[in-house]
Design a protein around this nucleic acid. Sequence first.
DNA 1: ACCTGAACACCGTTCAAGT
DNA 2: ACCTGAACACCGTTCAAGT
Lengths: 194, 194
Amino acid sequence: MENFSGSQEVSMRAHARRNYDQILRVATTVFAESGPDASLNEIARRAGVGPGTLYRHFPNRQALQAAVLGERIENLCGHGADLLSLPDADTALARWLRSLLIHTRTDKGLGAATLTHATDQGAQCRIAIEETAARLVARAKDSGTVRGDTSADDLVHLVAGIGLATEHRSDPAQAERLLDTVLRGIGIPGTPAP
Amino acid sequence: MENFSGSQEVSMRAHARRNYDQILRVATTVFAESGPDASLNEIARRAGVGPGTLYRHFPNRQALQAAVLGERIENLCGHGADLLSLPDADTALARWLRSLLIHTRTDKGLGAATLTHATDQGAQCRIAIEETAARLVARAKDSGTVRGDTSADDLVHLVAGIGLATEHRSDPAQAERLLDTVLRGIGIPGTPAP
DNA sequence: ACCTGAACACCGTTCAAGT
DNA sequence: ACCTGAACACCGTTCAAGT
């Protein structure tokens, strides 16, 4: 009986697992199409499950957004860790902030939204990113030209803000220009005044 | 007959006018309570009109938002015009950008939303603000320390971004710090590096 | 000419009923 | 134990019917 119930449990879990993966896959597509406010009912529909099943696996929208972004955030932070071995600490920070900016601008602001939302699930998306930022900032203060009063949290919010503000704009170079201004503001010169 | 139809028209228009004003008054309250995504049906309900009447006067949400913000934007731009007579062009720009930041942070991001939304109605909100910004920026380039490659449009977007990114945060000083970074980035020193 | 509010197609979310 | 989808209370938006 334990075996039977056991094997039943496994197949249940396998089924649940398939649903979970399918919801996540579809959510990735739909968020990319429609942004962070995409319809959850539509995600459930296209995943072939009832809305209740979606809510069972992801209790709220932020949980689903965080799950979709998890792997991308890991990559972004891995990239940040790699950059720590660059000889120039300023360049390392500047390059990573450019990657972060790209992240905030993907999927119609999904990345930026999860960085600024107040909720706990938003914090879950922020925690690894802020740790990475903190390490790069500390090193750039120490051995680079970055101002001593620069805060990693502030920087992440500035970049997220650029992502949010330029989200509806066609010119992709604008976001880059805005980031250049921020970099100068924290003490990374870039191009000198014309 | 012309007189009668005329006076009928006047009373119609008076009624329509009362509805318009009432919708605008209620919308101001509800946007302040619930932010730019507040329910339009709720606004109509609390204004004592049917949803159709609201849509007659304001064909879409942005039109209503623009109408609510109209007076505030006029004040903001008037303040900018006053600042043009300050002896120090850098200080004038810095002060006005602080006012703009406050504007973007009122009513749970209503001000910032209208500055970044792509639509024509969003442009209507942006036009006076960008003109004011352009005048202050030009003067600060000419007789101040602001970099020659600073664009008024970029600056407005940077400030709107700070407003959006800090909207859900409790610490009001953070937005000020982020603006200081931006000011340094365009060539207004503020406090020197510690 | 202007207003009305019922109606439509959607949304997020829940929960009794199934297997 | 997990899934289902009908159901609920909402939303934005429209439009025939009223005055």
